[in-house]
């Protein structure tokens, strides 16, 4: 038996025990996934308070729904779908009546992309993110500026490392939509980081939007 099959068997056994209400099995599931769910929620909601509420709701819903889990998808995919829905519900409550995009919003499926404004090249070192608190905060703010439908795709694909197929399953959208939204999110983040780098270069305005007309 391959290691992969072995893991699948372990997971099935764990789920079966959890479905019988075995506290240790439930605890193992929560322990394995709480960090991912919390980080996704933190970036979707933008503050620790709402992220914590989302974390609790995700696992409360999951434990309630677990007896009906049929194993058609991986447990993580199933859980992350619950987490994604909990994030969107939390965002709706935050917006309290404001217009919200939904995940099946066709607008984001346009395959035209806004033309770039910044053509400045900038250099980064591999450990810049770890060392530079300001850069990290600019990067986090940039994520927060993405429309929700793009943000949640970007978080699962580029931050949590899910595949295109897994992200599509988690969000209940097509793989094509995942690719288009991911690309659109990355282009927007590139603009925001380029803006930051252009502005942070003392006295330099080269490469900014004014040069884009060239």
């Amino acid at each position: 038996m391959t290691a992969h099959n072995g893991e699948a068997v372990d997971e099935q056994a764990l789920i079966a025990r959890a479905q019988q209400g075995d506290a240790q099995a439930l605890a193992a599931i929560v322990e394995n996934h709480q960090r991912t769910v919390y980080n996704v929620a933190l970036r979707m909601c933008g503050n620790p308070h709402d992220a914590e509420e989302t974390l609790q709701e995700t696992f409360l819903s999951a434990i309630k729904a677990l007896p009906k889990f049929e194993g058609r998808s991986q447990l993580s995919t199933w859980l992350y779908r619950i987490a994604s829905n909990a994030c969107l519900m939390q965002r709706r409550r935050q917006a309290a009546g404001a217009d919200m995009t939904s995940l099946d919003d066709g607008e984001e499926e346009r395959d035209e992309f806004d033309p770039p404004k910044y053509f400045v090249d900038w250099s980064v070192r591999p450990d810049d993110v770890l060392l530079d608190g300001e850069l990290r905060s600019v990067m986090e703010d940039a994520i927060a500026q993405l429309p929700e439908a793009l943000r949640i795709v970007f978080i699962w694909r580029d931050l949590e490392g899910l595949s295109t197929a897994e992200t599509a399953e988690v969000l209940g959208i097509s793989e094509g939509a995942v690719k288009v939204r991911l690309h659109r999110a990355r282009l927007q983040l590139r603009e925001l980081l380029s803006h930051y780098y252009a502005e942070s270069r003392a006295g330099s305005r080269t490469g900014g939007p004014a040069d884009a007309k060239a």
């Binding site: 709480q34 960090r35 919390y38 980080n39 933190l42 620790p48 914590e52 974390l55 910044y118 400045v120 090249d121 900038w122 250099s123 980064v124 591999p126 450990d127 810049d128 993110v129 770890l130 850069l135 990290r136 990067m139 986090e140 970007f154 580029d158 931050l159 990355r186 282009l187 983040l189 590139r190 980081l193 380029s194």
Partner: peptide, 18 residues
């Protein structure tokens, strides 16, 4: 810069649950 953006975000650290 798109490539650099993607690489930067791949190294963005995650937080532990407080």
């Amino acid at each position: 810069t798109l490539g650099k953006t993607i690489s930067l975000y791949h190294t963005l650290p995650e937080e532990d649950v407080p």
